[in-house]
Each structure stands twice: as structure tokens, then as C-alpha cells.
């Protein structure tokens, strides 16, 4: 009588071929490359990310005015709304999905450090946020909007970079409150409404100045003001209070942005879990 053997395995004792040095930067970029390739395979995430530029195209199309000032304000709102709808939301879903699928737990046993893992995993989303901001500017420039001038590019770029990182951090923080993907969908909504709402209201000229100054303190609202100020049309959405008189408004916007980014990063770290919520 013959019996069937289990699935054959190699009789080779080892297939190992030695050791090599892998730097932390290499590890981080390799994980980022892998995550980028996975973005293209996740239909929901892909649709979410592509919806950003389409939304701006729609906003530009229905904009009642095509003056450089109006388009600069629209750019300020567009950048924040697009990044919160795409980068932020994608960060929430990525975190929950990776955690629920136990991927974080598995990667934790690799040679990646915690910071390398987090950086590599979210870097593609942050880059997408920056690219979408550039897309917003490009779309509005095509409609007659002004581009940031030589002086404005630096704060514009700094703001978009910090804002993108901050919105990813906010997404990770929100994911920390969510037990599963379905709950995360709902958990992401309040912050999305607050961020998008504040960005939208700042660009509406009918609100009293005091209210606009308060709105500037809302998470990422200062990015709306910063983008509008630096978009080549010198649009000021908020008159800053006397307490910061003499300080360049772009710097105030950047500091507020950085502050919220640090706050969300701290919350994200506090709520971070390697394993599914029990």
C-alpha cells in the first residue's frame, strides 16, 4: 500500500546566501515603494485619491468668478478640502485596514524600527497630498489663477508639506479611535466636516473678522489662509489680531499648522495600536 506524502518540501537545509547592510533610509523607502504599488491595487483608495483633482476641476468649473483673487481663495480652500478628503481619509483607512489585517503586527517583527515603519507606510499618502495640491494649483492656473511667486513658493511648499503630514497624522489619530473599517468611515467624518467647513467659511467674505480669526485656529484652516496668501494674488483671508502684529502672516499660518500637526502626531502616537482593537 502506498500513502501520499504531505506537500513536498525542499530537503535543502538552508537556502540562505549570507548577510548585507541595509540602511534605515533604504528600509523606509522600500516599504514606501511597496505601499505605493499597493495603492494602485486598492480600488477604493485609488478612487478616493483620484476624486481630489476631480473635485477641484468641478469647483473651478462652477466658480462664479475667475479673478485671480477669487481663484487664490479657491486654491486655499481646494488644497485643504482635497487633502482632507483624500490624504486624510486614505490615512484613516490604511491604518485601520493594515491593523485589522494584522499587517502591522507582522511588520513589527521585521528589521524596520517603529519610526521607519510609520514613515514608510504613510510616505506615499503624504506625497500624494503634495501632488494633489500641485494639481489644484495647476487646474486653477489653467483657469487664469496666479501661481505662487518666487517669494511665495517656499512658504507655500512648506505649508503643503506640513499640512500633508499633519493630515496623515490626523488620519492615524482618528484610526486609533476606530475598531474597524466601518467605524473608521464614520469616525473620520466629524474632523472632515470641521476641516472642510472651516476652510470653506474662511473663503466666504461675509463673516465678521473676529469669527474668521477664530476659524483660523481650527485644525488646518491656517493652510487655507497660507495658500491663498502665497498664490500670487496676495489674498488675505484673515486680518491677524494685534497680538501677532509685526509677525509675517505666513509665519503665523505655518506655526499654527505645525502646532496642529504636532498635536495630531502626539494623539496618533498615544492611540497607536499594533494589533486589532479587542
Amino acid at each position: 500500500m502506498t500513502t501520499e506524502a504531505p506537500t513536498p518540501i525542499s530537503r535543502t537545509t538552508t537556502t540562505a546566501r549570507g548577510r548585507r547592510t541595509v540602511t534605515p533610509l533604504q528600509r523606509t523607502l522600500r516599504l514606501a515603494r511597496f505601499e505605493t504599488s499597493m495603492l494602485a491595487k486598492q480600488r477604493t483608495t485609488l478612487v478616493t485619491l483620484l476624486s481630489g483633482p476631480l473635485l477641484v476641476l468641478g469647483l473651478a468649473a462652477i466658480s462664479p468668478s475667475s479673478s485671480p483673487q477669487a481663484l487664490a481663495a479657491l486654491a486655499g480652500m481646494g488644497v485643504v478640502v482635497v487633502m482632507s478628503l483624500t490624504t486624510h481619509f486614505a490615512a484613516v483607512m490604511l491604518t485601520v485596514n493594515r491593523r485589522e489585517a494584522q499587517v502591522l503586527k507582522r511588520l513589527r517583527t521585521s528589521e524596520l524600527s517603529g519610526s521607519e515603519l510609520v514613515t514608510g507606510m504613510y510616505l506615499p499618502l503624504a506625497v500624494v497630498g503634495v501632488l494633489e495640491s500641485l494639481a489644484v494649483v495647476a487646474v486653477l492656473a489653467a483657469r487664469g489663477g496666479a501661481l505662487p511667486d518666487a517669494v511665495g513658493w517656499l512658504p507655500w511648499l512648506a505649508g503643503v508639506l506640513i499640512g500633508s503630514a499633519g493630515l496623515v497624522a490626523a488620519g492615524v489619530a482618528v484610526a486609533g479611535l476606530s475598531g474597524n473599517a466601518e467605524k473608521a468611515n464614520w469616525a473620520a467624518v466629524p474632523l472632515l466636516v470641521v476641516i472642510s467647513g472651516a476652510a470653506n467659511m474662511l473663503t466666504v467674505g461675509v463673516l465678521p473678522e473676529a469669527v474668521r480669526q477664530v476659524l483660523l485656529l481650527v485644525p488646518f484652516a491656517s493652510l487655507t489662509d497660507l495658500v491663498a496668501r502665497t498664490s500670487g494674488a496676495s489674498v488675505s483671508l484673515v486680518e491677524l489680531p494685534d497680538v501677532v502684529a509685526g509677525v509675517p502672516p505666513e509665519l503665523v499660518d505655518l506655526v499654527l499648522l505645525l502646532l496642529w500637526t504636532v498635536v495630531f502626531a502626539a494623539v496618533a502616537k498615544k492611540l497607536w495600536r499594533w494589533e486589532p482593537r479587542g
Binding site: P8, T15, A16, R17, V22, R27, F34
Partner: peptide, 21 residues
């Protein structure tokens, strides 16, 4: 392959997959 790219140990992905069936 992702694991391989993160590891300082070198091996052959096809051979390892073969080994675990």
C-alpha cells in the same frame, strides 16, 4: 520580496517559497 528588501539576511524568494510548499 518586501520582507527580503527589509532584511539584512539574504536568501532566494523562490527557493524559500518552494521550501514551505
Amino acid at each position: 520580496q518586501l520582507w527580503a528588501s527589509l532584511s539584512s539576511r539574504v536568501d532566494d524568494a523562490d527557493a524559500v517559497l518552494e521550501r514551505v510548499g
